[in-house]
């Protein structure tokens, strides 16, 4: 088996790992690092459940090899809490019915972080466009959009 050694920073922590070259980033995160917050859904780039941040930009970890992340920084849903406190987006999802079964939620949160990084006061249309790579089979999206709009307001401190 062809193996490669990669160095990546995941949720602020440096990792060095020897892995098969064909290991998907999603599998590396879940099966090698045991960070199971990141979900595998369609595994064909459609559902967004596997979304993580790569150098701050949202990507689908099922569409990338782990070796492509070599030298880069990854943030998963486990990395967005600080000191045991929920991220404002997480708190807002809980408060505004942003999830039901929760399977899409880690991916939705990563997409939401990217939306708010790009524009701290997004319009509803911008939020919906920013979620266009993420599917939810439970909520009908209204609660998710409301959660993000409310969190944006909180994070702006208005």
């Amino acid at each position: 088996m062809s193996r490669v050694t990669i160095e990546v920073v995941v949720n602020g922590q440096p990792h060095r790992a020897e892995i098969p070259a064909r290991r998907l980033l999603a599998d590396f995160i879940r099966d090698d690092l045991f960070l199971t917050g990141t979900k595998r859904g369609c595994e064909t780039g459609v559902c967004g459940a596997c979304s993580v941040l790569l150098d701050g930009e949202v990507v689908k970890s099922c569409l990338s090899l782990a070796v492509q992340a070599e030298g880069h920084e990854i943030t998963t849903v486990e990395g967005i809490t600080s000191g045991g406190e929920l991220h404002p987006l997480q708190a807002s999802f809980a408060e505004h019915g942003g999830f039901q079964c929760g399977y899409c939620t880690p991916g939705m949160l990563m997409a939401a972080i990217a939306i708010l990084n790009e524009s701290p006061s997004p319009t509803e249309a911008e939020v919906r466009a920013g979620l266009s790579g993420n599917l939810c089979r439970c909520t009908g999206y209204v609660g998710i959009v409301e959660s993000i709009m409310a969190a944006a307001e909180k994070m702006r401190g208005t």
Partner: peptide, 9 residues
């Protein structure tokens, strides 16, 4: 085109 993730990758 596509969606935010695919545009980034």
């Amino acid at each position: 085109l596509a969606n935010p993730q695919v545009r980034n990758q």
